[in-house]
Nucleic acid binder design. Sequence first.
DNA 1: ATTAGCACTCTAAGCTTGAGAGTGCTAATA
DNA 2: TATTAGCACTCTCAAGCTTAGAGTGCTAAT
Lengths: 362, 362
Amino acid sequence: MVSLMLDERSKQILYAIIESYIDKPEPVGSRFVTKKYPFGFSSATIRNIMADLEEFGFLSQPHTSAGRIPTDKGYRFYVDSISGTDINKGFVRERMDKASYLHYDDSLGDMVCQFTKKLGRIKNDMNAMFSEVINTLSSMSNYVSVALPPKTEKTTFNRIDLIRYKDNKAVAILLTNEGVIKNKVLKIDASLAQEDINSIADYLNSEYAGHTLDEIRGSLVKRMKQEKLLWDEVIAKAIKICEQALLFTSEDIFVSGLYDVINLPDFSNILRIKQIAKAIKDKHLILRLLDEFSDAEGVQVLIGSEHHYEELNGLSVVASPYKEGDRPMGVIALIGPTRMNYPKAIYMVDRIAKCISKTLSD
Amino acid sequence: MVSLMLDERSKQILYAIIESYIDKPEPVGSRFVTKKYPFGFSSATIRNIMADLEEFGFLSQPHTSAGRIPTDKGYRFYVDSISGTDINKGFVRERMDKASYLHYDDSLGDMVCQFTKKLGRIKNDMNAMFSEVINTLSSMSNYVSVALPPKTEKTTFNRIDLIRYKDNKAVAILLTNEGVIKNKVLKIDASLAQEDINSIADYLNSEYAGHTLDEIRGSLVKRMKQEKLLWDEVIAKAIKICEQALLFTSEDIFVSGLYDVINLPDFSNILRIKQIAKAIKDKHLILRLLDEFSDAEGVQVLIGSEHHYEELNGLSVVASPYKEGDRPMGVIALIGPTRMNYPKAIYMVDRIAKCISKTLSD
DNA sequence: ATTAGCACTCTAAGCTTGAGAGTGCTAATA
DNA sequence: TATTAGCACTCTCAAGCTTAGAGTGCTAAT
C-alpha cells in the first residue's frame, strides 16, 4: 500500500489540497493552504511538501507558476484512505464535509430517509423504482446517475460457445435473442481438451437454449440441490456468466442527471459536454462498464483513466451492485468528473444500493 | 396572407437565403447569392432586394457589414409557403433538398419504410413503440424528438371544477390522482349561471370520479349513443378536456436526441446547450407545450418566439398529433434551433405521425 | 430597371504588453 | 536539522491595438 510512504503531515496536506480542489476547481497554491488550512507552517514549508507530493505523483502543475491540482493517482490514494474505513463512521463524513459547502446533516440524511420510504411504496413497479433511484442519486450528487435494473423477463438464452485459449483459459461467447452480449475469459482446468469443453457447452445449450432467465434460475436451483457434487466448476462458472449476462440488456439502462452535470465547472468546455453526452447516448458503453461491477462486493471506484474506455476519459465512476438476498441483481453508479466529491459519492451509492437490496430482499 | 406582398423574384431570393442559411449557418451576402443561385442579376440588384426583404422584417443583419440571416418572421413566411401545399408533393421535397446536402431519396424514404415495418411488429408494446419513434425521428433529423404516448391506464379522474370567467367563458380545473394537470378556458353559453355550471361539474364528478380513462371512455361511448340529444355542449367540452388531460402525464414523455442536437453549430454556445438540456430535463414544460398541439389537425410549427415559453426561446417546434381512428391519442414533435430544416422536419413528423395513426387504428 | 464602382463600417484574428500569482532556490535562523 | 524569509524567475490572462477581409449602401452611369 502506497500510504506507508507518506507521513501524517504530508497526508493532511494532500487531503487539504484535494478537498479544496474538489470544492473549487482552481489550482491550489502554497500560500492558500497556509491560510485556509492553518497547519502552522509557512508557505515555504508547504511548498517543499507539495514538491514532494508532486514527485510521488499525487499532484501536478498545470503550468510552472500555477498551484497544484490532484492527479488520478492522488485521488486514488485519497479514495483508498476512505475505503479502508467504515463508510458510516465519522471519517468519511468529515472528509465529505470538508470537500463541500453542503454539509451532511443539511440534506443527505433527510433525502435518504424519504427515498427509503418511497421505495417501499413502489417496490412492485420496477420502472418507477429505478426512476426514483436515479433521480434521487443525480439530484443529490449533481453527477450522472445510472442504474442497471434486474432483467428477468423477455431476454432468452440462445447458446454459449466455449473456446480454449492459452494454457488454462477459455473464452465464453454468449448469444441471446438480442445478439452477443458477453464475451468473457474463464479459467479452466488445464487438462480439459477442446472436446471436453465442447461437451460442456453442448450440455448447457441443450439444457437451457430458448429459456428465459427466470426459467433457467428455477431449474438451476433444483439441479444444484439434486446433483450438488456432480457439478463441474467450469459449468458452474459458465452458468454464472450466462446469468449475469442475461440480467442486463442495453434497452433498459436508467440514466439521469446530464443537465446537472453539465452545470459543473468541469464541463465548461464544450468538448467535454459532448463527450459525456455521447457516453450517455451510447448506452451499451455504460452497460459494459457497469457490467464489470456486477459481481463485485460493495462500492467500487474507478478514477479517470483507470478504466479502459477511451470515451469516458477523464470521468470517474462510483458503483455498487445491489442484491436480492445473496444474488447480485444489478448495479447502480454515479459518473462524474475526476474531480468528484468521492466521499459523498461513495457514501450515497453505498446507502442507496443497500436500500435497494433491502427493499428487494423483503 | 403576407405572401401577397412579395413578387416571385423576391420570394425566390428569400427562399435561397433561408435555405443557404439552414444548410450552413453563416450570414448570406449578396455576392454569394449571385454565385450559388444564379438568378441572372448582379449583386447590386440582389442587394436592393435584400434591403427590401429586411424592411419587410424577413431578414436581418448581425452587424452592418455582414450578410443577412432570416428572422423568425422570415422563417414563418417560408413555412407558410410550404404548409399551403401538399406535403407529399414535389414542392416540399424540392425545398428540403435545397436546404440540405442529404437528399430525400438517399435515406429518408428507406428509413421511413423500415420504421413502418418495425412499428407493425412491436405495436403491442407501447414502450418499445415510442422508443422506436423517437429514435427514428431524432436520428433522421438530428433534432430532439419528443413523443407523448397515449396514457389510458393508471391515472384516474378525481374531480373537475368549472368557474365562470368573463362573459361567456369558464375555467376548467381538472384534478387527477397525480395533481392538477389541466387548466383551460372554455366558451360557454352566456346565459348559464354559476349554479348551472356547478351542477354540470357535479354531474361529471359524481359520474366519473375515481375512474380511469379507459373506463370513462367505455361509459362515454355508451351514453352518447343512448342520450344523444340530451348532451349539453358544455358537458361534452368538459369531458373532452378531461379526456385530453388524462391522456398525458409527465412521467412518460419520451425524449431523445440531445446528443445529436448539441453537435449542431447552433449549439456551439454553452449557454444554449444548457438551455436545451434544461428544457429536456423539465419534462413538464415540454408536456405543456405539446399538450397545446394535442387537438390540432396535422403538422403544426412554432418558430422561435412564437410560443410563450421563455425557456425555449430560440427553439422551434414541429409537432403533429396522432390518432386512433378519429380520436387524438398523443403528439410527436421535433424540437430544434430556429434555423431548422423545416421542410424536412415537417415531412418527417407528418409521415411518422401518420404511420403511428395507421398502426394504432388497425 | 439595372449595374459598376467606391467609400465606409464592422468583425475577427493576431500581436504586444503588464499585472498578478505562484514557484524554486538560497541563505539565514531556531 | 527543520524551518523560513526573501527574491528572481516563469507563466497566464486580460486589455488594448492593429489590420485584412467581407459586405454593405449609395451614386452615377448605362
